[in-house]
């Protein structure tokens, strides 16, 4: 509010025409945001509660829904830590050392962002599916990756691979290696440097990256849809369960489950906004690289 008040004296001197233009621009922008962003979000909750709270709760505590929640959490619990470790390792290598092909490596880390989710799923089917490279061997050893949980995890890892690295690399680049070198000269070991100097400097950016990685891991649809095989109660994550309910014309159920995911999105947005507001300077310049 303070900003508005302080801007007022200036604004008074502006011609009426310009103030009209400002108002119009703000109106159009807000109108678009309302229509295109807020309304769909509202629709999720309204549709979810259309048939009453009883139906809503019933849809969520349904065994298949609970199984989907459990599987979604399981996938995230495996994929997110793996990509976090990867992101930290990649950022360490990319920002503290010079080596040939660094630019190429950076492009490769970004690659999953520009691959369609469906193709992300497809590549694992081609690798591990019945007709895939390792298909016969896997079958001979009675290991099922595709149309099973490991496939879901792999596809999710692929899709969410860049998130943590993309958050850390620009930050660590901006921070330079001075503090790490200072620690080295003072006699610190590699792990001491990482845990005592680097990690405290990147913790909020790391959390930010993990947050975005997790949101995508739990919400991914296209890639997991291709590798899941849609086995109810076994290989259905929450987004896939939404699709199944929706295709069964169980709209209230679909939207009830969807509202859980929408809540996850809202919580993610709130935490993300909080991190940006509270620790903005420790997150470095963030360029949007996709989700």
């Amino acid at each position: 509010m303070a900003a508005v008040v302080s801007a007022a004296p200036l604004r008074r001197h502006r011609p009426i025409g310009r103030r009209l233009v400002h108002g119009l621009l703000i109106g159009v922008a807000l109108g678009f945001l309302l229509l295109f962003l807020l309304l769909p979000l509202a629709a999720v909750f309204v549709e979810a509660l259309r048939k009453g709270l009883g139906t809503y709760v019933a849809a969520i505590v349904h065994p298949e829904a609970l199984a989907a929640i459990e599987l979604t959490l399981l996938v995230a619990v495996i994929a997110v830590p793996l990509n976090t470790v990867f992101g930290v390792a990649a950022a360490w290598a990319m920002t503290h050392f010079d080596f040939r092909g660094k630019a190429l490596l950076g492009a490769l880390i970004d690659l999953p962002f520009s691959v369609s989710p469906v193709v992300s799923g497809l590549i694992y089917v081609l690798l591990f599916g019945a007709q895939g490279w390792f298909g016969p061997w896997l079958q001979a050893h009675d290991i099922k990756l595709i149309f099973a949980v490991p496939g879901l995890v792999l596809a999710t890892i692929f899709v969410t691979l860049p998130f943590v690295a993309r958050e850390l690399i620009p930050l660590m680049q901006a921070q330079g290696s001075d503090e790490e070198e200072a620690a080295r000269v003072l006699g610190a070991s590699g792990w001491q440097i990482f845990f005592r100097v680097t990690l405290p400097n990147i913790r909020w950016a790391l959390l930010y990256g993990v947050l975005l990685c997790n949101a995508r891991a739990m919400g991914e649809f296209g890639a997991v849809s291709v590798v899941s095989g849609h086995i109810r109660g076994l290989t259905n994550t929450l987004p896939l369960h939404v699709e199944i309910l929706y295709n069964d014309y169980n709209y209230a159920g679909a939207f009830a489950v969807a509202s859980l995911l929408a809540l996850l999105a809202l919580v993610t947005l709130c935490l993300k906004t909080f991190l940006e507001w509270r620790y903005g300077s420790e997150l470095a310049a963030r360029a949007p690289r996709g989700h």
């Binding site: 001075d178 503090e179 070198e181 200072a182 080295r184 000269v185 006699g187 070991s189 100097v197 405290p200």
Partner: peptide, 20 residues
């Protein structure tokens, strides 16, 4: 002898203090 074991005191140009 690595930087770690050299026992050299170094003051960096921009100090490189551990900010946390």
């Amino acid at each position: 002898v690595s930087a770690r074991d050299r026992g050299v005191g170094l003051v960096f140009q921009h100090y490189a203090l551990f900010r946390h």
